[in-house]
Design a protein around this nucleic acid. Structure first.
Lengths: 248, 248
DNA sequence: CCTACTTGTTGCACATTGCGCAACAATTGG
DNA sequence: CCAATTGTTGCGCAATGTGCAACAAGTAGG
């Protein structure tokens, strides 16, 4: 049986980062592993690239990244949810022709637990397991508006349309609750419009959101009423199933 | 910036495993990454070696390992506990001359969150971040006896002294509660004797355990009363601090 | 403020390491 | 019981990752 050296070293770095109380520098890591700093640099860069580690740009030291937790979340808690959701987002994708997904709240962000891509040439790719912002995406805003989660702290503007004011966002949440669905109107990415509706567990708590993402050229504003109805119906249907299965 | 290929591939496999609903086989993995099955085999073996993946020997397929969750636990929840515990296990080690540690319950096992090695030539090495059994270690039995955790399902015999009967273990828990401390009398490893006491949070819930491990030649049975007193005192002292700091 | 020290990044040349191929072994399914 | 698929091991080649060393960027200390 052969062990892959560089992978092994990388995993050891992950363990070091997780176990250390504070952040670690490249030299420190290289000493602990008994390797050159140059190798440590490159291994760490690879970890950062994958999100398993993050770099504090100030101190140029490293910490465990959010990827670890989101993977654990997705494999443990969210896996059954994904299994239950698949048929619904499949149908949603077929009915709307757009990328469909289900997300939950994790680490103050929005964790995509299930995702089906549209079959159109021009499509939005989101990808399972991704952590996306809560304040400028439909599925994220939906979680905040209907779930028992705090307003995001980080309100980075991703496009000129991003709502970056705390007060405005609060008002916006109110609107979302009144309409029953959330919309991301090019707030996260140019040319992309999304809609999402809440998913409730048996106890009536919004524990997830379901939605679609499409290019603005297809998901035009005049189609919003029709599409949002479909999305909300999907949310209601999935909620019903979760209640039956006693999920959450 | 250069990316380390084999590390990158290994991390991608972790992600695949975490996101997949079921277990994955070597061929499946190799196809998804576009690499040869031999490479996939070796990468996976490395992951298994580190505990990031586990192999179901029946189906010869792979799943995410417990390492991921224990690392997340240790970095998130347990990190503050570790910081608070350090001075206490340091003192405990100095007072007893033996390896000292603090553990919490995680994934039906016993997660070592802080650990200080004895300075003696002959010493017990346990190691932070390790997941050890609950039924045949002092810190593990302590968690079960005083905490609100279920009896372990797996009662593997590690030595002839391991308590492998559910009923016996139940009785044994009773004894531990009466004495106020747990002892592992060569139940996990030959020649090693350990003692542990509960650590309570402000609400009076046993959320951790603190203890020592030493070779039987030093930790003789006639020293147990004296040593156990020291360990229990350490548990009480740490509990007091946790209450002050409002931990847990 | 300048110098000395420590820490992180990049280029480069070498050879170790990990790669794919292919044969083999072990299962599964028809 | 044979065919087909999946997992493991040996092996030779070269691509990959390694350490060295120079460089860059901070940090501390006088």
């Amino acid at each position: 049986m052969s062990i892959i050296q560089s992978l092994s070293r990388g995993l050891t770095i992950i363990e070091l980062l997780a176990k250390s109380e504070s952040s670690l520098g490249v030299t420190e890591i290289s000493k602990q592993l008994g390797i050159d700093k140059s190798s440590a640099t490159r291994l760490i860069q690879t970890l950062v690239e994958h999100g398993f580690a993050i770099k504090d740009p100030e101190s140029r030291r490293f910490l465990v990244g959010p990827k670890m937790k989101s993977l654990v979340d997705i494999s443990a808690e969210a896996r059954p949810l994904k299994a239950l959701s698949m048929p619904f987002i499949k149908k949603l994708m077929e009915d709307t022709g757009e990328n469909s997904h289900v997300a939950v709240y994790s680490q103050e962000q929005c964790l995509v637990v299930a995702d089906i891509e549209s079959t159109a040439q021009l499509r939005v790719v989101s990808g399972e397991g991704r952590l996306i912002p809560n304040h400028c995406t439909a599925i994220g805003k939906c979680l905040i508006a209907f779930g028992e989660y705090p307003l995001p702290r980080d309100l980075n503007a991703h496009t000129p349309r991003t709502i970056s004011s705390r007060d405005q966002l609060k008002l916006h949440m109110e609107q979302i609750r009144n309409r029953g669905f959330a919309m991301d109107d090019e707030e996260h990415e140019y040319g992309v419009r999304c809609m999402a509706a809440p998913v409730y567990n048996k106890a009536g708590k919004a524990i997830a959101s379901i939605g679609i993402s499409g290019p603005t050229v297809r998901v035009t504003l005049d189609k919003v009423p029709e599409l949002s109805k479909i999305v909300m119906q999907a949310g209601a249907d999935l909620s019903k199933l979760l209640a039956q299965k006693d999920y959450g």
